[in-house]
Amino acid sequence: MPEVIFNGPAGRIEGRFQPSKERNAPIALILHPHPQFGGTMNNAIAYQLFYMFKERGFAVLRFNFRGVGRSQGAFDHGAGELSDAASALDWVQTVHPDARACWVAGFSFGAWIGMQLLMRRPEIEGFISVAPPANLHDFSFLAPCPSSGLIIHGDADKVAPTKDVQTLVDKLKSQKGITIEQQIMTGANHFFENRVDELIDYCGDYVDRRMAMSEV
């Protein structure tokens, strides 16, 4: 799994990239949780999402937001991190220009950034938002949400409580032209302790179903 360094708006960005053998393979971008609470690209959920997409033949990139690991810059409360994500997507598209599809997957803070990226990048056709912190960050920019995706969270999540995520899901489900799938994992907390494998199985199943539909 090659280490990569590419230029972002605040300097160099450190990442890990898994290319695909197929020229037109889909691409996926993985976004890690909050940098100020220990979030890195090696977070267990970000790492497992990376491998889930890799196993399905995607070209996949995960990277450290500014100020994390060897990525330059300093935490920017979301605005700079969104620019980092856009630069990361640009880089993957340069390396893999013939991709037939583009996905973004994020956990917690990364889910918030990922859903903002959806609004900027019409080529993103699928998303996975793991435990989106709808109580901590404003998601009203999803007006309307341009892509179908999966929102998956636990009902024992004290960081991003179910009622706040449910409000977000209900709002998105009312929009026409997209399909939002929701999966609530009973007993799972924000970090999906002892449940990460189950979480990734749900996500993989969702990607499989979406990709099968796109090939019909």
Rank of each mutant, 00 (worst) to 15 (best):
A25G: 11
V92I: 13
A85I: 02
A74V: 14
M213Q: 14
A131F: 07
M185D: 05
I152N: 08
P26M: 00
W112Q: 09
P161F: 09
R66D: 11
A25D: 06
L49V: 04
G154I: 08
V159A: 14
S214W: 12
V216N: 14
F109I: 00
D205L: 07
V92K: 03
G69C: 11
V130P: 08
V216W: 10
K171P: 01
L61D: 04
L49S: 05
L61I: 02
N24W: 10
F63Y: 10
V130Q: 06
E3G: 09
N194T: 11
I180D: 06
Q72E: 15
K21F: 12
A99L: 09
K173F: 04
I152R: 03
G177Q: 09
W112M: 07
G126D: 08
R100C: 15
E55F: 12
P97T: 00
V60W: 02
Q183V: 15
A188S: 10
L29S: 02
K158Q: 15
G187T: 03
D155G: 03
V92G: 01
Y51Q: 08
W112D: 04
R121G: 00
F17R: 00
G38C: 09
R66F: 06
E14R: 12
G8D: 02
M119C: 14
M115T: 15
S148F: 10
G149D: 06
T186D: 10
A99Y: 08
M211A: 13
S140P: 06
V216L: 14
A143D: 15
A134N: 08
G110W: 05
E55S: 15
C102R: 06
E198K: 13
F50H: 11
E198F: 12
A111D: 05
Q166M: 12
R23T: 14
G106R: 01
R121K: 12
Q175W: 10
I124P: 10
E22L: 13
E81W: 12
H96K: 02
A101H: 10
L136Q: 13
H190C: 07
R209G: 03
L29K: 06
G106P: 04
I178C: 03
I5G: 02
N194V: 06
A188G: 12
T179M: 10
G8Q: 05
Q36W: 09
N135F: 05
S71L: 10
G154M: 09
I151N: 04
A134T: 07
I5F: 14
R120L: 14
Q18L: 08
M41R: 03
F141C: 13
E181R: 15
A79Q: 14
L61E: 00
V92T: 03
P133K: 08
E215R: 15
Q48C: 07
G126M: 07
H153T: 13
Q36F: 08
W103A: 15
A143S: 15
N189S: 12
W103K: 02
P97F: 04
R66I: 10
A10T: 00
S140F: 06
L136C: 03
V60D: 03
A44V: 14
A160Y: 04
L117C: 07
S87K: 10
Q93S: 07
H137I: 07
M115C: 11
A10G: 08
I13Q: 05
C145S: 14
Q183A: 13
Q18H: 13
D84G: 01
F50N: 07
Q183M: 13
R12I: 06
F139E: 02
P35F: 09
Y202D: 01
